[in-house]
Amino acid sequence: MKKTFLILLLVLAHSSTFFAQKSKTAYDIIVAKDGSGNFTKVQDAFDAVPDNSKRTIIFVKAGIYKEKLKLISSKKNVTLIGESYKNTILTYDDYAEIAGGTSKSFSTLIEADDFYAENITFENTIDSNLPQYKKGGQAVALMVNGDRTIFHNCKISGFQDTFYLKANKRTYIKDCIIDGTTDFIFGSAIALFENCFIQSKRDSYITASNQDVGKNKYGFVFKDCVIMANPKEDATKVSLGRPWGTGANVVFINCFEESHIIPEGWSVWSKDPEHKAFNNWKTTFYAEYNCYGPGYKPNNRIAWSHQLNETKALEYTKEKIFVANTTTANNLEGDWNPTIENDKCKIILPSKKAKNANSVFKKGF
């Protein structure tokens, strides 16, 4: 009996060693500030990825990594995994005035196709409301130019212009927190946000879509999301969006909207007839379907916005949003139906009677 028990212990010991080794080598590259990985900087890990290779998995240990990061287009098929978005933070403090424009102010830029991020915070710490940044306080936390990019269980945090989905390509954002002040989700992308907390820090605009008129069937789509004021900030009058481009395209489906959303819902870009974006609203497509909450007032919405019927709403599936022919502005490579392995995040929507989303946010992912 003792001999059998000893053999069993040896087998278990060997098995645990095997799984420990397997777990340790499951990542191609490990980044750790304490020197226990392959690199101490995330940019060094990005640079080490072979050009046009099969999937490379980078694990980033907990820590605050202050770097201006760029994953160039040849570094395709990169997976970036952190320990948790709460303690694995990629941050920088560049802004438009000193960077040379909004598109150069990024903390992290993803140019490569087929990028996947999980358990990471992408952050820009520049508060555009402070007087020293008035000449150019746009400060991008995360900018995406690649196609077929996925962000899961991440936080994208900043102030003005937080999340720049610049290129007219496809991005899937699932179980994420995105916060900011003015136009903090903006650009030309075909982007689906599912099960996300969208948090306004101040009175301003959430989206600034820059689609070209007549070229895109889909733009920014928010499904089963919580549209809320940041619990630590004071936002009481927030617009769902304003049309940066002539074909701005934004839709909210099955979303909870807090009372900070203005009754008219949406805004024009400029009230100045001399402004080049003055007439953008005329060719904009802004819509909602089956939303609820104290901020959802369909009878008060601006006249040129839409309330979808069920038939129209059924067109907004992941499979249809990401097919290659939904845009004529870019030649996209093949249809895309993104999946997330081990997706265990729970539904975050509050009850129909809820007045705010603070309680579900505290219990969120």
Rank of each mutant, 00 (worst) to 15 (best):
K2G: 12
L6K: 05
L8Q: 11
L8I: 14
L9K: 07
L10S: 12
V11L: 13
A13L: 13
H14Q: 14
S16F: 15
F18L: 13
F19W: 11
K22V: 14
S23P: 07
K24T: 14
T25D: 15
T25C: 10
A26P: 07
S36I: 05
G37D: 06
N38P: 09
K41Y: 11
F46M: 03
S53N: 12
K54Q: 15
I58Q: 01
K70E: 14
K75N: 07
T79C: 13
G82C: 07
E83V: 10
E83P: 02
E83S: 08
I89M: 04
Y92C: 06
D93M: 04
Y95W: 12
Y95N: 08
A96Q: 08
E97R: 08
G100I: 13
F106G: 00
T108Q: 01
D113Q: 07
F115T: 01
Y116M: 05
E118K: 06
E123P: 02
N124M: 06
Q132A: 13
Y133F: 11
L142G: 00
L142C: 01
V144C: 06
R148N: 13
R148S: 08
R148H: 13
G158M: 03
T162A: 03
F163M: 03
Y164D: 11
L165Q: 02
K166W: 09
A167G: 04
N168L: 09
K169W: 07
R170Q: 06
R170S: 03
K174P: 07
K174Q: 14
D175W: 02
D175T: 10
G180I: 00
I185M: 06
S188D: 14
I190D: 02
F193Y: 05
F197W: 05
R202L: 14
R202Q: 14
R202K: 13
S209Q: 06
D212N: 12
G219N: 02
F220D: 01
C225T: 02
V226W: 01
I227F: 02
I227H: 01
P231Q: 04
K237M: 13
P243V: 11
W244Q: 11
V251L: 09
I253P: 02
I253F: 02
C255M: 05
S259T: 06
W266Y: 10
V268P: 10
P273Y: 07
K276H: 15
K276A: 14
A277I: 05
T283S: 11
T284S: 11
N290I: 07
P298L: 08
R301S: 09
A303D: 15
W304Y: 15
Q307E: 15
E310R: 06
K312S: 14
A313N: 06
L314K: 15
L314A: 15
Y316E: 08
K320E: 14
A324Y: 08
T328A: 05
E333D: 15
G334W: 06
N342D: 14
N342T: 10
C345R: 12
K346Y: 11
K346I: 15
A354T: 09
K355Y: 14
V360W: 08
K362Y: 15
K362L: 15
K363H: 13
